[in-house]
Amino acid sequence: MRLTVWLASRLLRLLLVLLSVAAVSFGLMMLSPIDPVDAYLGPQMAQVSPEQRTLIAERWGFNAPASVQFQHWLQQLLSGELGWSHIYNQPVSDVINQRFQRSFFLLLSAWLLSLILCVVLGIAAGSKEGSLLDRLISGYAYITASTPTFWLAMLALLLFSVTLGWTPTCCAGPTGVLSQEVTLLTQLHHLLLPTLTLALLGVATITLHTRAKMAAFMRSDTALHAFAQGASRFDIAWRHGLRHASLPAITLAFASLGELFGGSLLVEQVFAYPGLGQATVAAGLRSDVPLLLAIALFTALFVSIGNLIADGLYPRADPRIARDRTNE
């Protein structure tokens, strides 16, 4: 019962947040000095008479006040109609569907890889504070924390694709081959470098937080008691410390979904990987308003659901939170 109430309140909140995301992004689009008719016409701008332009503007309802346009857009949105993307000449829902399928695997594997790496590195570093391993891992984390994503992606591309030739230089499949004919192995081969770049850079914050939590646990009375009973450092870290250290890791891993998405924007741009990130940049540069709005809403939904999952997972990791929540 309490769980249902909690879930219902969270879903209501999610709806409210999505509504304000829609309002904010729509407002920003309205502020933009770009003329949507120009953006639609593109290079054919010169062949269209002023009368035709007013006809287009009238047909699309650009003369109506902003609030009416917003209402109209929202109604369309609720009935599942996202609009037409003029740069891909496809319905926006199709573009997002195709692109997200490609990006999803990249995002998921990078996320899982960096999560595993972070927890392992953080625990290894935190369980013996000040050791050589700790200093090495912390140093690595500080270096990656201050490395821009696109720069590392460019370096990786230069080294592994151009100089060594181990990985392909671009795209989701070899050029001149239909996308249906690309084998799974080739796809994985093309994904390898973007995934690794994204994963290695996402490591820093989670590692440092896990390390700090673990180091604090190692100084606690619980750990001292376990040491007195003759448990080894590894035993204590593995049996007792893991649960303590996992809480910040869970929070940050789900909270960093937005960052991950931002990273994929840059990485997909550098590796010319045709995913959702590249579509976002293209939509921004070539003024495809419906696509840009839909992507903003979609990513907000994606990140919010991630936060919801993190909230649901806390009581599993820390029984004290479950107790507090039922007492409320």
């Binding site: 995301v21 920003l28 933009s32 937005g258 931002g262 924007l265 940049v281 903003a296 919010s304």
Partner: peptide, 14 residues
């Protein structure tokens, strides 16, 4: 909830 690079793009667009 909006990834900051996308929000950045929206604002830069505006």
């Amino acid at each position: 909830s909006v990834p900051h690079l996308i929000l950045l793009l929206l604002i830069a667009f505006a």
